Amino acid sequence: MTDKKNQVSRRQFLNYTLTGVGGFMGAAMVAPMVGFAIDPLLKGQKDTEFIYVMDVSEITNEPQRKTFKVDQVDGWYESQVDRTAWIFKTEEGNILALSPVCTHLGCTVDWASNEQYPNQFFCPCHNGRYTKTGVNIEGTPPTEPLHAYEYKVEDGKLLLGKAKKR
């Protein structure tokens, strides 16, 4: 005698089978997409890479605009992009390398480009102003100083790393 309570009908068997196969196929389709999305997050961050910019003997007390190339990785796309720094020696004789990116809205600042403010960094987009050492002037749009690049000197050469908040 067969016990009908524990038997699976043909309809239930097909239902279970199709649900399992559909779930497996769905997971097979979604897994690569999830892997693609989170893989860049799982990759380790490189230590700060320092790039040669100029010889220390070339640095003056007047800010000089220097452009250099850095390697950039966006997900799997690797490229070289231009970075710019304003480099000079402070009154104390220390090297200062400032990012030209305005901390207000990300425009580019220029040194002594406005006749009204001859010894200041000036952002023409919103009249943002900074002192020679990159400190934002009160009453102008920027809310923080220009970021400064990490640097080191090796064999008389100036190497710059990442720009950091001060």
Rank of each mutant, 00 (worst) to 15 (best):
D71H: 05
E49N: 02
R83V: 07
E58C: 09
I38Y: 15
P40Y: 12
G75Q: 05
T48I: 13
P32R: 15
K46D: 07
E49K: 08
N94W: 04
T84W: 01
F24M: 13
F24N: 10
E78T: 09
D82W: 06
A31W: 15
Q80K: 14
M54V: 15
T84K: 01
T67C: 02
V73G: 00
K89N: 13
E49P: 00
G35K: 14
E62R: 06
L96H: 09
W86Y: 09
Y52D: 08
E62I: 08
E78K: 02
A27P: 05
Y77I: 08
K66D: 11
V70C: 03
V34R: 04
F68R: 05
V70L: 00
A31P: 00
L42A: 04
N61D: 15
D74T: 03
P63S: 03
V34W: 06
T60H: 06
T67A: 03
K66F: 10
N94H: 07
E58P: 07
V81P: 05
I38F: 15
P40S: 11
M54N: 14
G75C: 03
D82A: 02
V53Q: 06
I59F: 04
K46H: 03
M25R: 11
S79K: 02
V30W: 12
K69M: 07
I38S: 10
W86F: 09
K43Q: 01
F88I: 07
M54P: 10
T84C: 02
W76C: 01
Y52P: 01
D82S: 07
A28H: 10
G75W: 04
E78V: 05
P63Y: 01
S57G: 04
K69N: 12
K66I: 12
K46S: 06
P32C: 14
Q72R: 04
L42Q: 09
A85N: 02
I95D: 12
E91L: 08
G44M: 13
D39R: 14
F68W: 11
P63M: 00
A85Q: 01
F36Q: 14
L42E: 12
E78R: 00
V81F: 01
F50H: 09
F68N: 02
Q64I: 03
F36S: 13
D55S: 10
V70D: 02
Q45K: 11
T48K: 02
K46W: 00
F50N: 08
D55Y: 08
R65E: 15
S79M: 04
Q72W: 08
V81I: 07
A28G: 07
D39Y: 13
T48Q: 09
Q80A: 05
F36T: 12
D47K: 11
E49G: 02
K89T: 09
P32G: 07
G26D: 12
V56H: 05
G93P: 11
I95Y: 05
V53Y: 07
F24Y: 14
E62K: 10
F50R: 08
S79A: 06
Y77P: 00
M54W: 09
K69H: 11
W86C: 00
N61E: 14
Q64D: 13
